[in-house]
Simulated scan of single mutants.
Amino acid sequence: MNWEAKIITHNKEKRITVFFEKNVEFITRIKKLEGSRWSQTLRVWHLPDTIENRERFQLVPLSNSLPSDEGTEQIKKFMQWLSSKRYSPNTIKTYSEALKSFLIFYREKPIAEITNEDVIVYNNDYILKNNLSSSYQNQIVNAIKLFFTTIRGTKIEIDKIHRPKRAKILPNVLSKEEVKLILNAHSNIKHKTMLSLVYSCGLRRSELLNLKPTDIDSKRGIIIIRQSKGKKDRIVPLSIKILAMLREYYIGYKPKTWLFEGQIENTKYDERSLSNVLKQALTKTKINKPVSLHWLRHSYATHLLESGTDLRYIQELLGHNSSKTTEIYTHVSTKNIQQIKSPFDDL
């Protein structure tokens, strides 16, 4: 069918809009793409501006979309090396796809002949020319640096490859009233418990879906988060209200392998289905903000800070390696800002 895609700025965010005549099959396909949303004001479907989506909707030239035979072989070896180092499947996929993009750009050049100047040219003539994000550029740089440390006889000087400056973006935070509306939107105990657990413990989506019934320690009043980001275990406090909710859910659903299972027994609940649970809650509450599951984690951290919890404890609860990562929440906490009186009030 005929369709047209273009890049726009919607709600201060780069998005890819897709225009097409109403078609049930095409709408179903669009809905399955991660991050897809319908804009009531624009009357159009839109998706995150990622390299994958740009290629999917042909916003980036697809000519020579495969690396050279040498490049393909090296990517395989790189993936094997990452796997042997026990990098997560998501990291392996991200790094190998990023490296693939770089090696496609230099498919006519032997890998041993690639220099630091070539990295700069790639950034200017591909990343910047196609208006790709700094975070994607950072992924490319990470992949290049890691890849060239694993091969010998290269002209690349690893230490001279610089990452782009990161944009200082504040985390999105909901008010307690908004969080309460979202968490109470569902009458289904399973949906209600999943969203409540994300907020009450500040969980990442993968952390929620990887929980097992045995990770809930009701006697000690904790939840054990196993092998999360950075392959670290940590514990978070178990709310009394959440414990009561979990018991009600457990009696109704009796999960076996995973705490939250899909329709097929012993299988994890699907990530996209969880995102849809949140979308349905937002529809019921009529909250028009582009809320994601991670907003609940951000809100948890900010609300803890506003209630007087020490930043060091919040760092532990969130599983951050660096205190600098946690310090971002001091910029969105309104506790002290609200006490500042504007000179405008004295005019």
Score class of each variant (00 low, 15 high):
K256F: 03
K232V: 11
I120K: 14
E70I: 10
V332C: 08
I140M: 14
P89N: 08
I51F: 13
T283I: 12
E157I: 15
S322Q: 12
N116K: 04
D118T: 05
L47W: 01
N23Q: 00
N116I: 06
Y249E: 06
P164E: 08
Q74Y: 12
Q74T: 02
Q339D: 14
I7V: 15
T28C: 00
K190W: 07
H191Y: 15
S196M: 09
A112N: 07
W295D: 11
L174M: 10
L304S: 11
L197C: 12
S322F: 07
Q315Y: 04
I224S: 08
K93C: 05
S65R: 13
Y136L: 11
R15Q: 04
S196H: 11
S135W: 04
L209A: 03
L304C: 13
F19R: 14
K165M: 05
K6G: 00
I114Q: 09
S322M: 08
H331G: 00
S134F: 02
Y300L: 03
S175A: 07
N210D: 13
K231C: 02
H320A: 04
S187N: 14
E73I: 14
D69K: 15
T50A: 00
T91R: 04
P110C: 02
T50P: 12
Y136Q: 08
N210Q: 08
R43D: 12
L47R: 03
E97C: 10
E248G: 07
E248W: 04
I120V: 14
